[in-house]
């Protein structure tokens, strides 16, 4: 595989990718408990974005615009951001098992959410999401501090992350068992497994800039990530300011993860599996791998959300259940095929 630019192919690939993403969004809006024809979805979008003025059923239009489309966009952002984090962390930590939650962020978010929902911290001023965000940031700060004190090397931050995760998961369980009634416990459990039900447009205004900003920051460092192929010392000898790149990219992944977890809860497996799937599709060069992973993650998450709504009629499954149920076998397949190809 040469990295000489093949401009025609590249433009074609970008257009195809965007078309796929758009198609996924439209399907995400059309499929659900009440199926809505695609042309109605198209007309709703035209009405809302350009004031096209098609006469439509107000309920259909409301469902599409207020519920499903915002939800699909957030799912896409979330899938893209978690996948990007996975790619970046796997490259920087040189560990194929690294995922956005390895830094203890999701565990911290859970504790934050539980603290707000059950202990009533913030006296009603804090929403569940905000609580989760603060929890995530606090956990990341603690893990970073521990990693810095533990010494250099990528092993330190992984170990610190594992320790942090255990601590915050234990805290979450402690709070839930001590203070929650049965209904609260069930609600929290549902949130912990990932849930897009409550998502509305204000969430999009947070998720979209964070995902796009994250993508740009990562793309800017694509060559630096490539340079980590043979380790941090090799990257340094290739002219990469290793410490600065670590700080920028790990902070960026922490922020992306914290925001996404605070909106939709902790959705597992996406950040681990999608990077491997994308590598399988486009190779290991980050200039291509990062956008490919973001796109695959976005589409995968929209699809998982659709499945979570239709798989049991009349009931919404936590999306984390779907991502793991679909993700684990897919991961196994990629692993075994990767073996066979080598």
């Amino acid at each position: 595989m040469r990295s000489t630019p093949l401009s025609i192919n590249r433009t074609g690939a970008v257009l195809t990718a965007l078309a796929l993403l758009f198609l996924a969004l439209v399907l995400g809006a059309a499929i659900g408990e009440t199926a809505i024809p695609l042309d109605v979805v198209g007309k709703t979008i035209a009405n809302r974005l350009w004031g096209a003025g098609y006469p439509l059923d107000a309920i259909d239009e409301g469902i599409i615009w207020n519920y499903r489309l915002s939800r699909a966009v957030v799912a896409a952002c979330c899938g893209a951001a978690l996948s990007l984090c996975g790619v970046v962390l796997q490259a920087l930590l040189r560990n194929a098992l690294a995922d956005p939650y390895i830094l203890g962020i999701s565990a911290g978010a859970s504790t934050g959410a539980v603290a707000v929902a059950i202990l009533g911290i913030g006296a009603g001023m804090l929403t569940l999401s905000l609580g989760a965000f603060f929890g995530a940031v606090f956990a990341f700060a603690l893990v970073s501090l521990l990693a810095l004190r533990a010494g250099r090397g990528t092993g330190a931050i992984i170990l610190a992350g594992v320790a942090g995760s255990q601590l915050f998961n234990a805290l979450t369980s402690f709070i839930v068992t001590k203070s929650a009634n049965a209904e609260q416990a069930r609600g929290i459990m549902f949130w912990l497994l990932g849930n897009l039900s409550g998502v509305r447009w204000p969430d999009v205004t947070l998720a979209l800039p964070v995902a796009l900003g994250g993508l740009l920051v990562c793309l800017w460092h694509a060559r630096a990530l490539d340079a980590f192929t043979f380790g941090a010392e090799s990257a340094a000898s290739l002219g990469i300011p290793v410490k600065r790149v670590y700080v920028i990219l790990i902070s960026a992944t922490a922020l992306m993860t914290a925001v996404m977890v605070s909106i939709v809860g902790s959705i597992g497996f996406v950040g681990l599996v999608i990077p491997h799937a994308a590598r399988f599709l486009v190779g290991v060069r980050h200039g291509l791998l990062l956008p490919a992973a973001a796109l695959t993650g976005a589409i995968f998450m929209i699809a998982a959300d659709i499945l979570s709504r239709v798989i049991i009629p009349g009931q919404v499954l936590p999306i984390g259940v779907i991502t793991a149920l679909v993700g684990a076998p897919a991961f196994a397949l990629i692993l075994s095929r990767g073996r066979a190809a080598s």
Partner: peptide, 10 residues
Amino acid sequence: EQQAETTERI
């Protein structure tokens, strides 16, 4: 370097 290895499929 003396030993620079990778598990990436490059």
